[in-house]
Amino acid sequence: MGANPQAGEVALSLGGRSHVCKLTLGTLAELEAELGEDSLVALVERFETGRFRAADVIAVLEAGLRGGGWRGTRADLVAGDPAGGPVGAARAAAALIARAFAVPE
């Protein structure tokens, strides 16, 4: 199962298994609350300006995994060793944020 970037999806290899991630409206609302942002624009700016923390990356990936149908836990994610390590995880989180707000052509 491959990710469809046009649909806002991002592929994430976690523990050697490929998962499709997608930020849905519901998971974006949860992220706003969890990350203490007052708007979606502020959440996007946090990643665009490089002001994100490792906890932010984990929260975005967890939300994206859930949006893609994953039923794991945050502990599963943290223990799952994402492909590319911390840099790969940050890239996947940034791609999720960017694709959630991309306007399809």
Score class of each variant (00 low, 15 high):
E32T: 05
E34Y: 04
L25G: 08
L23V: 06
E62C: 02
L43Q: 07
S39N: 05
L31S: 06
V41F: 15
Q6W: 10
R53N: 11
L43D: 02
T24G: 10
R46W: 11
R51Q: 13
E34K: 15
F47N: 07
Q6G: 07
V60L: 12
T49R: 14
K22W: 05
E9M: 09
A29L: 10
V10H: 00
G50A: 06
S18V: 03
A63R: 02
R51I: 01
D38W: 03
T49G: 11
D38L: 14
G26V: 12
E48G: 03
E45R: 15
E62W: 09
G15K: 07
R17T: 07
A11D: 03
G36W: 05
L28N: 00
N4D: 15
V10R: 09
E37T: 05
S39L: 11
V44W: 13
R46A: 10
A42Y: 02
R53T: 14
G15P: 11
E30T: 01
H19F: 15
T49L: 15
A29K: 02
G8Y: 04
G16P: 13
D56E: 07
L43Y: 03
S18E: 09
L35R: 09
A11G: 05
S18F: 01
S18L: 14
H19L: 15
L23R: 01
A54G: 05
P5S: 05
V41T: 11
E34Q: 15
V10S: 00
S39D: 10
L31V: 09
T24V: 10
V41H: 09
L12P: 08
A33V: 12
R46M: 15
G36D: 12
A11Y: 04
E9A: 02
L25E: 10
E34D: 13
G26H: 01
T27F: 14
A59I: 00
L35T: 04
R46S: 06
E45H: 08
G50Q: 08
F52S: 12
A63L: 13
E37K: 13
A7R: 12
V60P: 00
L31R: 00
A33K: 09
A54L: 11
